[in-house]
């Protein structure tokens, strides 16, 4: 299945070449979890402060089990703020 991965701010450094606008579409196995996708890009789990799937927050404790669906969008940020 295909998912879109978006890594922003300092996490952008973990995106492979070929990514544009801080995002890349990838093929993953059925049932791939949020944590597995981060591992594929060598993103340290502790660096992922804000993690959204289709815009909805996924808390840290759910990330190892949270199975992605086909066409899901996974987005992550390190600790950030603004105003």
């Amino acid at each position: 299945m295909r998912v879109t991965v978006k890594l922003y701010a300092l996490l952008g450094q973990y995106l492979p070449s070929g990514a544009t606008d801080n995002q890349i579409e990838i093929e993953v196995a059925e049932g791939a979890t949020v944590q597995e996708v981060f591992a594929r890009f060598n993103v340290p789990p502790k660096s992922c402060h804000l993690v959204l799937v289709n815009g909805m927050y996924v808390e840290p404790s759910r990330r190892p089990q949270y199975a992605l669906q086909n066409n899901d969008t996974l987005a992550a940020w390190p600790p950030i703020a603004g105003g």
Partner: peptide, 25 residues
């Protein structure tokens, strides 16, 4: 030592929110 005030804000400023707030709708 805080990741937001020590790293995030100096590097990206408040503008880092643009994609966040768009993503959360």
């Amino acid at each position: 030592d805080n990741a937001v005030t020590g790293q995030g804000l100096p590097k990206f400023g408040t503008q880092v929110l643009m994609n966040v707030i768009n993503e959360v709708g």
